[in-house]
Write a protein that binds this DNA or RNA. Structure first.
Lengths: 146, 146
DNA sequence: TCATGACTCATACGAAAGTACCAATTTCAT
DNA sequence: ATGAAATTGGTACTTTCGTATGAGTCATGA
């Protein structure tokens, strides 16, 4: 739906422009004007293609050069962040895909406490959601296993 | 197809009528000429981007395995899991820590659709939550960056 | 002793996520 | 052209998450 809307909107705008141009050419009798417009159109057509291609290339390089082989926990990072022992435990369980309730069971404490720890974690990791917390933790290499 | 074509055909006809009407209006001035040229440039810029995007999309489905460069993404896994192109896109955004609403904005579709895709992803990945989906996707090495 | 930080727990509320239906439209290969 | 698969979108509902706020317990070092 969105695609067709976009296509037709583009077509309509193009038509409008063409109408305007034809009006000018009729009024001014400038025959080379259409050629200029066509040239501009073609040029920017390729500019558009080029820009998009650049973007694609950038995505490819950024996704291929981030290989980490070592799987060691960076304890320095944990200290720098100021994560307490309990908070770190919660973070690990969280990154394993557990719900707050499950983590509570695993650590034998209440879900409320987990929520407190998780909220504090978000502040220290500077994130807003648990999915972002996982991302951040992976980046900082403070998670065991992977 | 029927509806959108009808709507936009109507719009185009309306534009034609407007154009006919504008024929009688006398508008002179070189300032709007430059504006028109700029408009053409911008339009075809986006048309170029769009065309290139279409081509990329088609290449992705057919020649995804012909890429011999170092790839962190296991496309075989994706096929084995039966993930569609759109579902995979959603999965990537999801793994980046975006909310459903954010993903909807990024892909220009509604949050409902995202929920549908995400639910289908859970079935195919055999998980129950998005945090688990991230875990599973990392294990299967189907995420870029990783 | 006492201040402090870590840990614990609770309530209440809003936001986000997830499920279970349904249905229209689009794409694509045969 | 046609049918299957994919994509999109909706409603209604439940669950989980996240925030804000307050407070009690406990160990420890100054």
């Amino acid at each position: 739906m969105k695609k067709t809307v976009f296509i037709f909107t583009t077509l309509i705008i193009a038509l409008l422009v063409l109408f305007q141009l034809s009006k000018f050419s009729v009024m001014q009798g400038n025959s080379s004007l259409e050629f200029s417009i066509a040239a501009v159109a073609v040029i920017f057509l390729f500019v558009g293609i080029y820009i998009n291609k650049q973007r694609e290339a950038k995505n490819n390089t950024s996704t291929s050069n981030t290989n980490t082989e070592k799987q060691t926990v960076d304890y320095t990072q944990i200290e720098t962040l100021g994560l307490s022992k309990r908070e770190y435990e919660v973070l690990c369980k969280l990154a394993q895909g557990h719900t707050n309730k499950e983590i509570a069971s695993l650590l034998f404490i209440s879900e409320s406490t987990i929520k407190t720890h998780v909220s504090n974690l978000y502040v220290k990791l500077d994130v807003k959601r648990r999915t972002q917390a996982i991302q951040k933790a992976k980046e900082l290499q403070i998670l065991p296993i992977s």
